[in-house]
Design a protein around this nucleic acid. Structure first.
Lengths: 221, 221
DNA sequence: ACGACATTCCATCGTTCTTTGGAATGACGT
DNA sequence: ACGTCATTCCAAAGAACGATGGAATGTCGT
């Protein structure tokens, strides 16, 4: 009690969680899992990992206690054990953004030029309440199914070019995706603008809404 | 833009910060630095590390961007770059406590039996305002000097047994230290109670107060 | 300029982590 | 029971990490 060995044992517990955050691919898996449960195969493809490697990382996450596995038929679905994990991930990103100048460079290189006008969550909710906004979810199908903003239209970015006719030309469209650092809404807005539609991007995404307690609706479209 | 390489580069930035949290000794260094700037030697001793090893970990922290070094004479003092680092550490501990059952065991083994009555911050501030409380800071000298609760008496735990006569016997004493998971106040309260003084422990410590924006006074006693 | 001191750098060794492909496991449909 | 499919387990190789002691760097006081 109070001795070095006990203290080391306690800090080893904290470090066991910390290890999770030390590998980029594990962070990517966390980022995906925040959007909803996902099978190993789905995660491996989305994170650009081999099955074995993906499974190994998921074991690491499971051993650390941040994700849990549920079997459904022949697939195994992983999910976060709680929203506090998302909060930790969010916190980590903020620290990197604030204290590592390189982060901003990498962000710009990945997401493209900063939007001139991005709609914050307060305004988005106001427009939704007015019924006057067209809110567009451009994430892949399984993520939309796992939870989306009530009233949002869903067209995955991959299908957006083909299905652009489904969108109104007389309303401004607000596209959202996973959250800050997610490229989908950025790409969607650029595509829509190039096609002559009035579109802008939501500043926040599902990650931030989940943390802020914004109601998220589950189920298919 | 939007490609795999850019995404990997961005996530590598986040992981660079995450790596910091993956080693128990680095976490211990962060925990100490939250209490205030400290020299390499001081950190090495407090964290039970060799000088070289300690210096190497501090380089890692510096490269990650979470601490900065300032030279003062022949010593080099390290300090956190911001309170958000403390917030990240706090968040990490919460996740471990909530999702890793072993953490609670290790906590009990290190801190000893749970206090029956620990004083929360609201009550502590009330007692301080009333001037009726005796608040005791039992951290080592450099940490007290770097910041403490205004009005607190300072007796480091190491000197407490010898200087116990300085404490009043007709008031209840509330001891505080670094924060949750810090053993100092636990030990102090046990010692004081064994000597027949009325003493209890503050639930929170400097870490939590710093995050909550509770005013902290710097300077010597 | 010199010696004492605090810290960092460097080279090395042992350990742990990652990745990979293939074999084993477990569940489903027929 | 059998084949298929999704996932995990296993072993091996390579990479990254961590600890260590001694040399190098930089600062102070004389």
């Amino acid at each position: 009690m109070g001795d070095r060995a006990s203290k080391d044992a306690l800090f080893a517990q904290f470090a066991a969680v910390g290890k999770v955050l030390g590998h980029p691919k594990r962070l990517e898996l966390l980022d995906l899992l925040i959007q909803g449960p996902r099978s190993v195969e789905g995660l491996a493809e989305a994170a650009d990992l081999g099955m074995s490697t993906c499974s190994a990382h998921l074991q690491t996450l499971r051993d650390a206690g941040v994700v849990e596995a549920r079997r459904d038929g022949r697939r195994i679905f992983y999910s976060l054990v709680g929203d506090d994990i998302a909060g930790l991930w969010d916190h980590l990103r903020r620290v990197a953004q604030l204290h590592r100048p390189h982060t901003e460079l990498a962000r710009r290189a990945y997401l493209g030029p900063e939007d001139t006008r991005a709609v914050d969550t307060d305004e988005l909710m106001r427009r939704l309440a007015d019924g006057d906004a067209v809110v567009l979810d451009v994430r892949p199908e399984p993520e939309y199914a796992a939870g989306h903003l009530p009233g949002a239209i869903h067209i995955p970015l991959e299908e957006l070019a083909a299905r652009i006719g489904e969108l109104p030309r007389n309303h401004e469209i607000v596209a959202y995706c996973r959250g800050h650092y997610c490229v989908l809404a950025h790409d969607a807005v650029r595509l829509l603008n190039a096609e002559g539609l009035a579109a802008s991007r939501a500043v926040d995404g599902v990650l931030e809404w989940r943390l802020a307690g914004v109601p998220i609706e589950a189920g298919a479209a």
